[in-house]
Design a protein around this nucleic acid. Sequence first.
DNA 1: CGGGTTCTTGACTATCTTCAACGAAAGTGG
DNA 2: CCACTTTCGTTGAAGATAGTCAAGAACCCG
Lengths: 224, 224
Amino acid sequence: MYVTIPTDHRRSNPITPLKSVMTKTAEARLKPGSYLYFEGDEVEWLYQVMVGVLRLTRLLADGRRQVIAFAYPGDIVGFPANGLHHTDCEALTDARLQPFRRAALENGEGDAELHAALLQSALREISAMQDHFMMLGRKSACEKLASFLCVLTERVGEEVGGYMQVSLPMSRSDIADFLGLTTETVSRTFTQLRKSNVIAIDNIHTIIIRRPTALLSLSLGDGD
Amino acid sequence: MYVTIPTDHRRSNPITPLKSVMTKTAEARLKPGSYLYFEGDEVEWLYQVMVGVLRLTRLLADGRRQVIAFAYPGDIVGFPANGLHHTDCEALTDARLQPFRRAALENGEGDAELHAALLQSALREISAMQDHFMMLGRKSACEKLASFLCVLTERVGEEVGGYMQVSLPMSRSDIADFLGLTTETVSRTFTQLRKSNVIAIDNIHTIIIRRPTALLSLSLGDGD
DNA sequence: CGGGTTCTTGACTATCTTCAACGAAAGTGG
DNA sequence: CCACTTTCGTTGAAGATAGTCAAGAACCCG
């Protein structure tokens, strides 16, 4: 499940690994900055993220970029369309991935359980992307960033000293390209949230949620 | 396949109907303005649009709306996530739909061919939605509307008197909510395209493409 | 420690939205 | 079929949000 506004899937299901009764393929490992695949590549494998964070991006001819999703442990990346990858996929951190043959999705390969799990994952992704449409099309900069932090806190936040804390392995421009903003706007919005004491910025990559309910309100547009 | 920036699927495959060897369920018919399902409904059927145009929408608590997609003949609507519908679906025109049991997607129901076709349709939808992200997040009003008209022309344009002509069964506010704009901006952008002689507006719901290459350039951001 | 990248901040600008009015089209009822 | 009402679409003026350009600060890495 990808980082978008959640529909219902809570952290109730933290990282249900898909287990295949078939060929137990060895986990893949990635270093930060290395690519798993590129747009246009033939799809041979899907991958479940076991450890780490990946970034899926698409480029426009003139260099404008859209981050499609950040993939966290439990998520599946690499769904094919007409047999091809439609995004670039880069590791933001050290990562470990469990590969599944594309055929496991497309014809089951005799493993009905795995097949069903991959399909459900694809369907959840459709729903998650629909949420993200609302974010991109209809939310203000502040609502976008607040939503983003809420979702991340929900999925991968850790409690530290009575507050939830979130690690942001991606750069400000990754966040900007995910939310349809510029880095400057992302930066200003972080500052604004910090000054209004909704969050604290421990360091650039670590955010502390000081007022979770305020953050949630902002994410829903009650901030007016 | 939904109305978004196309990846590769051209009109080469105009309306390949999915044929089931199983229960030949009767076609459903819809009048304009009637709903096929609502967000939150249990999914029992998927539908392939045979005739007509449907609109898939999502609402925010405060009434802001996002049009997720317009579904044209050949498209499948109703993919479940956790068994539920995640959009509202309304007919914009008279429509005819071929229903398929949800089980045909989820476990094949013994019809492997239908199962595979539904799965491929879901995967293509994921790719189409990724295109739409770029549109919502990274394009200007003019690029958005030009892209929209290009895609529609490609999919459902008809040649009339040497020019391609496109019918727009949806309202201006549907277009606005699809592109993440206001109705005023959509209207102004139509006027701008008309004044620069890229399109002609035969009537509110019928657009003539006077300069297709100029429209394509605008959609890609070469308009500067 | 130093050089390069990333992040933040400021001033200014552009694009799009908002608010408001008007006109056109479509639906309703006599 | 026409008058009335309502909805939808267009246009204008003003304002706000986010973008652009530019400089300085913080961070990272060798």
